[in-house]
Write a protein that binds this DNA or RNA. Sequence first.
RNA 1: GCCGCCUUAGCUCAGUUGGUUAGAGCGCUAGAAUGUGGAUCUAGAGGUCCCCCGUUCAAUUCGGGGAGGCGGUACCA
Length: 509
Amino acid sequence: MAKNKKPQKVKARLIRGFNDRSSSDIRATDEMMDKIRSVFELYGFDPIETPFLEYTDALGKFLPDSDRPNEGVFSLQDEDEQWLSMRYDLTAPLARHVAQNFNQINMPYRTFRSGWVFRNEKPGPGRFRQFMQFDADIVGAPSVSADAEMCMMMADTMEALGIKRGDYVIRVNNRKVLDGVLQAIGVTEEGQKLSVLRAIDKLDKFGVEGVRLLLGEGRKDESGDFTKGAGLDRAQCSAVLKVVGSGAIPKLKEVLDQVTLDTGGVPDEWGGMGHLLYDDAVFEITEELEPLLNSAGYSDRIKIDPSCVRGLEYYTGMVYEAELLFDVTNEKGDNVVFGSVGGGGRYDGLIKRFTGQAVPATGFSIGVSRLMSALKNLNRLDENAMPAPVVVCVMDKSRISEYQKMVGELRSAGIRAEMYQGNPKNFGKQLQYADRRNSPAAIIDGSDEFEKEIIQIKDLVAGKQASKNIKDNETWKEQRPGQFECKRDDLVEKISALPAIKAWLNSNG
RNA sequence: GCCGCCUUAGCUCAGUUGGUUAGAGCGCUAGAAUGUGGAUCUAGAGGUCCCCCGUUCAAUUCGGGGAGGCGGUACCA
């Protein structure tokens, strides 16, 4: 036997961007999900679930000019060599589901779903490679009123999650505003268009001057890294910046009219005055969206903002985004750039990829993991109210069936309970275990108690409170703070009366 | 991907201008106290000083490369 060869140990480690979740994280997330779900259900949405894996082509994520999937998605090949990918959002799978069940679905289809999604990219604060999203969509609804309803539901959801009015804002814009402006100033190349959208998306991060650089030549960040710009000339830059910075509607309209004057608009094929996309957008905003928001009383939380663009190509009309207005800090107390916690928009072309037939749809997604980490950093999560189990101590091994019976009685009454499953030899250990577990109570039923036909209940919460004033161990032992005896048959009644347990039983029916 | 900072005990972190035995606090284990959780006291366990290569009589410390973490930036469906 080789004695100095240690067996190679496997290193216990997590893949970066992937996290274990603690009990309190899970309970907090579940609670958030419940709140979101009830808002969505109230609005008349029903759940659907799709799998984690889809055919890569269904997600539309093959690299251009290549038969390999995009690097941003986790992918593998099935035995027949077809590419499969883990879903990176819940919208693409929904489009697939709708296309596949098109004839059975009753449109307009109001649906929601939640689940883990996966992105193979660098994690950051509040950004993970596996994270939870909660989506809602209306499929087969072409009008702005559907977009308006999504915005209102987003606002209601934020408030249901305990984020107060004024601590968040829903920013709305219409893609056609910028599409129209780009058309008017002569930006037609797709790549350049995307660069412009991305630059504008950075407005809150870098400010107007930063965006100006990104629209033009490019920008060097603090670390010295250079980002290539969209390559617009001075006039194009200033047109875009004026539109984006115009704020609300009257001013936006003014600025857009100026753009039309400056550029002469977009001539139609006969050389006459063309139809201007941004005029459609303004009409949709002022004549359709705003009246709905105003009459429903949402105009203080849902703001028109021409700088809200969202990075995606597939949006075709209204886009919206939920943003937190308070500062988010990390464990060290540093301010962290957090960005939006949810967003969405109208995607009239997504389902057409499968059916060939245009199906208008609008929807949004809440980044549950991200929102949760923001609220966690701020200690804004509800305290976990669920009490730890009552611990029944094992005093006499020959009577464990009696102890187990007590546990059963407590459980039948809806009280979490367990019999101590460690080595029962040292009684102090059992109480220490219950204490460290934060148990509200421990039950003691040894030979003394058995003879007297009683049990002892140790109220560990009361004892913990009392211990603050007891400095020496002798008094502590003599007083046995929080401990009282009762008849064996009164077990459930007495335990139920303990404040921590009573409160929990009341709040949980 | 690029830039910056970081990596020493289970956790938070000292420290070594290159030297023999690398420390603290908290936590953990045991005892004081064998039927009583806390507090206190005593003792103990726990380390590849992230990894590899190089320089050196000697590297946890210096140099190069790599990995991991944090933050920024790019990408973000």
